[in-house]
Design a protein around this nucleic acid. Structure first.
Ligand SMILES: [Zn+2]
Ligand SMILES: [Zn+2]
Ligand SMILES: [Zn+2]
Ligand SMILES: [Zn+2]
Lengths: 159, 159
DNA sequence: GCGGCGAATGTTATATTATAACATATCCAT
DNA sequence: ATGGATATGTTATAATATAACATTCGCCGC
């Protein structure tokens, strides 16, 4: 779904934006939070918390073995501040592709290549909003995850 | 969100429909599957697998202690056959309110009373379908879960 | 009825995901 | 430098889910 020519740039961009956002909001973008965000961005698909944990362990032996709470705290921080989203249907985390202008988004998740594309679509948001109103429901959070097969994968293999 | 005057009737309806559906499809609606479905329907909100497990244990001591795989197998069966839906954002399961005419639905989940209302809305389905096409994405499964506060709960407490 | 096959369940063990609770360290303002 | 708030370390465990293999059950043809 993504054809980034240089994924290092994707990561660098994400980290740079995170720095700016945290600075602007007077949040502390600590070393661990940075590393976790970097690892969430290791590809364009959702990443599991324990995979991040494993990588952190392997990454740097100056750092004592990282434990689950450390990773989950960093993920909580990143999620609360819109830098990362949790994909509930996969129990995994993906970097927000546009943290500055993120509103209600949804995900197209390819079950073949594992990538996730974050999309914003006014029609869907509108439809959800209307239906909430019709049901006199005060929506606070929307999880919309569409799994299937992306065009790249459908093209490359008979399915 | 629901004001069922007699929830026993809700449960009886659900079980009856399940019987018919399984009969029509030549599926075996076994005692365990029936009990699990009954427990999923213990209220109009999502129920946790391990709560079902606990209830089954307490329910009937003729039956040897039920183990997790038994419950998950029954939930898998019920889910595969559209009698139950999994709410991914809660790791919980809820009975399908219309298994015979279920299509793509979504859930309004009240974080206060814990009830979940299953809705079908052509506009949302249409919008999701269109956006999938625009992204050349072959959608296979949609998770749409809207959490918030229902009108009953919003009315009864200042929030 | 009996044998056999496939589906369902039992059983044991363990994998995976996530958090509670308390100790320690770090940051930063005064 | 001191104190309070925030972040991280540490230990333990809770909560969710599945793998793998054994046994039983239901059904069908004989
Ligand atoms: Zn990239
Ligand atoms: Zn986003
Ligand atoms: Zn009811
Ligand atoms: Zn409610």
């Amino acid at each position: 779904m993504y054809n980034c020519t240089s994924h290092k740039d994707c990561i660098a961009d994400a980290l740079h934006q995170a720095e700016e956002i945290c600075a602007a909001r007077h949040l502390r973008f600590t070393e661990i939070r940075r590393k976790v965000l970097e690892l969430v961005w290791q590809n364009h698909g959702p990443v599991k918390a324990y995979d991040i944990l494993d990588r952190l362990d392997g990454l740097d032996h100056r750092i004592a073995a990282i434990k689950p709470p450390t990773v989950y705290r960093a993920l909580d921080f990143l999620t609360e501040n819109g830098l990362v989203h949790k994909i509930n249907s996969l129990n995994a985390f993906v970097g927000c592709s546009h943290p500055l202008r993120h509103k209600e988004c949804y995900f197209l998740i390819c079950s073949d290549c594992g990538e996730a594309k974050e999309c914003c679509n006014p029609d869907i948001i509108e439809a959800i909003s209307k239906t909430s109103q019709r049901n006199e429901f005060q929506a606070e959070h929307v999880t919309l995850e569409i799994t299937g097969e992306c065009s790249d994968c459908r093209g490359s293999a008979a399915s």
